[in-house]
Amino acid sequence: MLDFTTYIGLFSAAFIAATIFPMQSEAILVGLILSNRFSVVLLVLVASVGNTMGAAVNWLLGRGVERYRDSRWFPLKRDKLERAQRWYHRYGKWSLLVSWIPVVGDAVTVAAGVMREPLPTFLVLVFIGKALRYTVLAAATLSMI
């Protein structure tokens, strides 16, 4: 059964959760899986794509951070961004595989933009990490049923 509004809602929640705005998409995914009304594979795919696209917003923010880094509204404090840059410098593009970790992941995706990681590489690595996280969450949820 395809209920586009449900999938759009999950995509939106996953998108927002990956940006600098506080949001939890995991609870929504678990609830939809537990409803037993939707394809688990499609739910995981939609959440993974939405979360990856939200991370791309952070990458874009990182690309333009030099202009705005000291603005009051900028979401990452200088020390947090510098710590993420050091992490990114140390582990390189592979750090994007853990971009799903709360707080740290957002900073790593911004740092990837600052460090000029090519967008295609960024998208592939972030998608892999986020898809693995949602897959593990889905598997854990299904094992409880």
Rank of each mutant, 00 (worst) to 15 (best):
E82T: 05
R72V: 11
L42E: 08
K77Y: 12
R37G: 01
G31I: 15
R69T: 04
M53Y: 00
L29A: 09
R83A: 05
N51G: 02
A55E: 06
L81H: 07
K80V: 09
L81K: 07
H89V: 11
T52C: 09
L45E: 01
G64S: 13
N51K: 01
F38H: 06
L29S: 10
E82P: 09
V44M: 04
L43S: 08
P75A: 06
W94D: 11
R83L: 05
L60N: 00
W94Q: 13
V65C: 14
N36G: 00
V46K: 10
R37K: 03
V30A: 13
S39F: 04
M53R: 07
R63M: 07
A56M: 12
N58T: 10
L29P: 04
G50E: 10
S39V: 10
G92N: 07
M53C: 09
N36M: 01
V44C: 07
V30E: 04
N58Q: 07
I28R: 03
L76W: 15
P75T: 04
V30P: 04
L76K: 04
W59K: 06
I33M: 03
R63V: 12
Q85H: 03
W87R: 05
V30S: 12
R67A: 09
W73R: 15
V40A: 00
V30L: 02
V49L: 09
R67K: 15
D70F: 05
W87C: 13
A47Y: 03
Q85K: 07
P75V: 08
L60V: 02
A84Y: 13
I28F: 15
K93R: 14
W87A: 06
W94E: 00
L32G: 00
E66L: 00
S48N: 04
Y91W: 15
W94P: 01
N36K: 15
W73D: 01
N36Y: 05
H89D: 11
L81E: 05
V57K: 00
L32P: 04
K77D: 14
L43N: 07
V44E: 01
V65S: 15
G31C: 01
